[in-house]
């Protein structure tokens, strides 16, 4: 088990290093200078700006300084243009929690709902319940989250006035959750459908497995066998899809945040891209990479905990 964790950690660090290098170098090699549109600026001022942000040095040196600052002081540099002279970490610090809340909430409502619908569909396979769920699943998987967001915003928010149509900045606690309801729902529909579809398939297959039959022939009722053997065994493989789901939600939230004016990482990333703010863009990209790698790692570890074949044998079968 320890060896397994070690391997995972090492793999994660290697990937992170590659991503960091790639992000840093590619952003800096982008065509077009960042201060191009500043017209009434003297060459000296420009040079001073470049020097301040170390932009005058060779790219590898810049990279070295960047890494050193991040590792020693957790210093991600200054925002170049978006909010000049503010530290990148200062800008990010406000926005990360909002984005995290929004994503975690979506995931938290999609897992139980998806599992519930999946079990229902599998147990009632080929009945009208199953057919209704299957149709909903196809719709929710196919229709993009931003289309759902527009629908919810217009009909539930604007026409019916049940929920705020945009995020209320500065709200906390329940008010914050309330003003985030529509974006969270818009983000959750696709994961719910994905989990439902996956679990239905898994469970339908597990129900037909020999060990389910054995459970029944050794004297368990169908319900007992389904719960103790069927559902437990089919939820396990879902874990591996959770990573993909979470990354999906994260990227979906980029657009959803801008639709609902949520001051999170998504909006920041779009703004920084359009403003060519190297330091902010690279920090947001690193943030997304960290989240995604972190969830992969978490999932691998969870697998280790729940699947004896990994825990005892040290490998996935």
């Amino acid at each position: 088990m320890l060896k397994y964790i070690g391997e995972r950690l090492l793999a994660m660090f290697i990937t992170l290093a590659i991503i960091l290098t790639l992000v840093f170098c590619m952003i800096r090699m982008m065509p077009g200078g960042i201060y191009d549109e500043l017209e009434d600026i003297t060459q000296e001022q420009l040079d001073a700006l470049y020097a301040k942000h170390n932009l005058d040095k060779p790219i590898l040196v810049q990279f070295g300084i960047f890494i050193k600052n991040v590792v020693t002081d957790w210093d991600w540099g200054y925002s170049l243009k978006l909010q000049p002279n503010q530290t990148v970490w200062g800008i990010l610090g406000d926005k990360i929690p909002i984005t995290i809340y929004e994503n975690i909430f979506s995931l938290m409502i999609s897992i139980p709902l998806g599992i519930g619908f999946g079990i229902l569909a599998a147990i009632k396979k080929n009945t009208w319940i199953d057919h209704v769920i299957s149709v909903m699943v196809v719709i929710c998987i196919s229709v993009p989250s931003f289309v759902f967001a527009s629908l919810l915003q217009y009909f539930i928010g604007f026409k019916l006035g049940l929920f705020p149509i945009v995020y209320e900045p500065g709200s906390t606690g329940f008010a914050m959750f309330y003003s985030m309801t529509l974006p969270i729902v818009a983000l959750a529909l696709n994961p719910i459908a994905t989990i439902t579809r996956y679990l239905r398939a898994e469970l339908a297959e597990t129900i037909n497995s020999d060990f389910m039959l054995l459970a029944r022939t050794k004297g368990l009722t169908e319900a007992q066998a389904t719960v103790r053997h069927g559902i437990r065994n089919s939820i396990l493989p879902i874990l591996s899809t959770l990573v993909a789901l979470f990354t999906n939600i994260m990227s979906g939230s980029l657009v959803i945040e801008s639709i609902f004016s949520i001051p999170g990482m998504g909006g920041l990333m779009i703004k920084s891209i359009n403003a060519i703010d190297y330091n902010v863009t690279q920090a947001t990209l690193v943030f997304y990479s960290l989240i995604s790698l972190g969830s992969i790692l978490l999932c691998d570890l969870l697998y280790g905990v729940v699947d004896p074949r990994v825990r005892v044998g040290g490998k996935k079968e």
């Binding site: 020999d210 060990f211 054995l214 437990r232 396990l236 729940v306 074949r309």
Partner: peptide, 10 residues
């Protein structure tokens, strides 16, 4: 088939 008759994770 005893290989598939037992629940692999119990």
């Amino acid at each position: 088939d005893p290989l598939s008759a037992l629940n692999p994770i119990m």
